[in-house]
């Protein structure tokens, strides 16, 4: 636990946050105790103004969250995409940036999805190469998020924990742990979510994602468009005290419900409530 605290203190990130999305920008800005927020890097305008700039100027830490670097792709990570991420970090005065352990394109085709990287030695070497290139161009530390995947590759040689631990050790990146992804992967694979969570290198956590999802045809989908299930909330106890960010990307509920959900996340994660409700 003490190592985790050391990490988050160094990254100047703490408390509970809510993902900044334009449709709820006013709600996010109105949260009296907002610890930090996260914005999709690829959606940032060329000139930063408006509500997001206001938040930055208020001193709220904002983490640019990339979704299209394709770090796990066989092709070299795009220099312009990395530059954009670096610019985002500078505009936002971000303490760190985050991306995914995934690939989104290959052979000139855009997948439109975050696709899982084969957990092979060869794929790990490619990923490490791309991560190092990205780190070299970034002005701030990088945190990487393992994704939720609905399938694995036959050439997998390592467990997710082994793959992740080695990646973090070889590159020095931090871990953006999405407990909802861990839950989705474990449930869909018939595994114990808590066991899967505790096997990961939790001492490298920069911050934690939590989100809601829904089951469809026997498969749990991390949709970000539903309330956080209690089973996912319970996983937050294993990372108690770490900074947590609630992701909500659609089917937004009334403000009171969203506040109640934030309070539930705060309580589950052992963090102070940010809604102004101190009950």
């Amino acid at each position: 636990m003490w190592r985790r605290w050391r990490v988050t203190e160094r990254l100047a990130l703490g408390g509970l946050g809510l993902g900044w999305r334009p449709p709820i920008a006013g709600f996010v800005a109105g949260l009296p105790g907002l610890g930090f927020t996260e914005v999709i890097a690829e959606s940032l305008p060329a000139v930063l103004d408006g509500p997001l700039a206001d938040l930055r100027d208020r001193g709220v830490p904002i983490v640019p969250h990339g979704v299209r670097l394709s770090l796990g792709g066989a092709e070299e990570v795009g220099a312009r995409r990395v530059e954009h991420l670096a610019r985002c970090a500078e505009w936002l005065r971000a303490p760190l940036v985050s991306e995914h352990i995934a690939f989104v394109r290959g052979g000139g085709m855009e997948a439109g999805h975050l696709l899982p990287v084969p957990r092979s030695r060869e794929a790990l070497a490619v990923l490490v190469r791309n991560v190092r290139r990205t780190q070299a161009a970034l002005p701030v530390p990088l945190a990487l998020e393992p994704i939720a995947a609905l399938f694995g590759w036959p050439e997998d040689e390592l467990t997710e924990a082994e793959f992740l631990t080695e990646l973090l050790e070889r590159t020095g990146v931090y871990l953006l742990l999405d407990v909802a992804n861990v839950y989705a992967n474990a449930v869909n694979a018939g595994q114990d979510p808590l066991g899967a969570l505790t096997s990961l290198p939790l001492d490298r956590i920069a911050y934690v994602h939590v989100a809601g999802g829904a089951e469809h045809d026997g498969i749990y989908h991390d949709t970000h468009a539903a309330p956080v299930p209690s089973a996912v909330l319970e996983l937050l106890d294993a990372v108690r005290g770490a900074p947590v960010l609630l992701e909500r990307d659609g089917h937004y509920p009334p403000a009171d419900e969203l506040r109640a959900e934030l309070d539930a996340v705060a309580d589950a994660a052992g963090l102070a409530r940010i809604t102004g409700d101190t009950r």
Partner: peptide
């Protein structure tokens, strides 16, 4: 889909 990269406004795309 669980998630995707194509969206510009959300991390699940």
């Amino acid at each position: 889909s669980s998630s995707c990269s194509g969206g510009s406004g959300s991390s699940c795309g």
